[in-house]
Amino acid sequence: MTFHFRRLCCFPAILAVVLQLLHGVAGQLVVIDEPTSAPPPPLVDLDGGVGGIVPAMFIFGDSLIDNGNNNNIPSFAKANYFPYGIDFNGGPTGRFCNGLTMVDGIAQLLGLPLIPAYSEATGDQVLRGVNYASAAAGILPDTGGNFVGRIPFDTQIHNFETTLDQVASKSGGAVNIADSVARSLFFIGMGSNDYLNNYLMPNFPTRNQFNAQQYGGHLVQQYTNQLTRLYNLGGRKFVVAGLGRMGCIPSILAQGPDGKCSEEVNQLVLPFNTNVKTMISNLNQNLPGAKFIYLDIAHMYEEITANAVSYGFTTLDKGCCGIGKNRGQITCLPFETPCPNRDQYLFWDAFHPTEKVNLIMAKKAFAGDRTVAFPINIHELASLN
């Protein structure tokens, strides 16, 4: 089946130009200070976290879990300005959220500190883990080129190698750290930008080269090689997040005539998720000692929206911070005033969930049943010998 995205592809190119101008201004004006008042407590109770079951967590991904790696590179994909971080203790950090990300919540549940960005990690901080994620990054090296600077997955893996060298030099060599690396958790969340900032962009050739099924296969072939690299570097416990209902994000909703989810986009990403599940099964069979688990982000989204009232959500189709239709035509701008009732919003901006959603998903991933994490959940994976 061939998909046609002429209508869906026009706006991101305009958005990139606007962001180029605004991020240039923001880079000159924004100073990150401590907030004048303490932020509210986490919106989801994370009590019940268990300490000491993994030595560290290493994180690879895109803007959904980036915590500042793009801050100091020439990139238009940045979130180191207010109101990003409005509910984070310390203000804007580079997280594309009002507060904590999903991996922040998982770190807390594991009894780990918040994992530092690779660009900022120093000294013994790296011993508890490093976050290599980068906004606009993808599985494919060309993905996100419309935002200029970003750190693709291949480069994130290279940065992990650099961390290993640093730790080994302090700890008596690679052999001495092998056991700790094998017991550590590797969280990988890639693929969103390979659609939003590659396949769906009019200046990329990929949708003329591949149909939906072929593209999903192409991505997962590259993904398999990259995850195998991490295995060869010593990783054994892997959490791989699938793609969510991307046709329901405010940016895509704003491009439709009726404000409804784009089933065209939702169907487009299905082959990727299907192939990732098959990949995980194959890697578990073929890589001795490895355990890969899959997080069904799309199912989590569907469960949350189906039970929105019980979770306290009232707004499912608009960004809390943004401009235009569905507050998704222009994403959150420097010094824009966001919605005051952030815990009632599913989305923070045109692309990313609020802290509340992130922490709900973290808890589901950590202790959920087989509908959201399989073949086991993160707690069970972390507890394996």
Rank of each mutant, 00 (worst) to 15 (best):
S251Y: 09
R245Y: 01
V240F: 01
L230Y: 06
P257Y: 05
I252G: 00
G244C: 07
K260D: 05
I249G: 11
P250R: 05
G247N: 09
D258C: 00
R229L: 09
R236T: 01
P250C: 06
L227R: 08
G242H: 02
I252V: 15
E263R: 13
D258E: 13
Q226D: 15
G244P: 08
K260Y: 02
R229W: 01
A254W: 00
L253R: 07
L243Q: 11
L233P: 03
G234I: 03
F238C: 05
L253K: 03
L227E: 03
F238N: 06
V239A: 11
L233D: 08
G247L: 09
I249V: 15
K237A: 05
G235E: 00
E263I: 08
F238Y: 01
G259T: 04
L243S: 11
L243C: 12
M246T: 09
L227F: 13
L253Q: 03
L230C: 13
Q226E: 15
G256K: 06
G234M: 04
V239N: 08
G242R: 07
N225D: 12
G247Q: 08
N232S: 14
R236Y: 07
M246H: 10
F238Q: 04
I249Y: 11
G259K: 07
T228S: 13
S262A: 12
K237T: 06
L230K: 04
G256D: 08
Q255V: 00
R236F: 03
R245P: 01
R245K: 13
L230D: 04
K260I: 01
L233A: 13
N225F: 06
I249D: 10
A254I: 00
F238D: 03
V240N: 06
V240S: 04
G247V: 11
K237S: 09
G256H: 05
L253P: 04
T228V: 12
K260T: 14
G259P: 05
L233S: 11
P250Q: 07
S262F: 11
Q255M: 14
A254E: 00
E263W: 08
L230G: 07
G256A: 01
C261W: 02
M246Y: 14
I249F: 09
G256L: 01
G242A: 09
R245W: 00
S251A: 15
L253E: 05
Y231W: 13
Y231Q: 03
C261G: 12
G244L: 09
D258T: 14
S251M: 11
S262R: 12
L233M: 15
L243A: 11
E263N: 15
Q226A: 14
R236M: 01
E263H: 14
Q255R: 13
D258P: 01
V239R: 02
M246W: 10
P250M: 05
G234F: 07
N232Y: 10
G242W: 04
P250F: 02
L243D: 06
D258A: 13
L233Y: 14
G235W: 02
C261E: 00
G256T: 15
I249M: 13
T228N: 04
V239S: 11
V240T: 05
V240M: 01
I249R: 12
G235L: 08
P257T: 09
A254F: 02
K260M: 13
L227P: 10
P250I: 04
E263C: 04
M246A: 10
A241N: 10
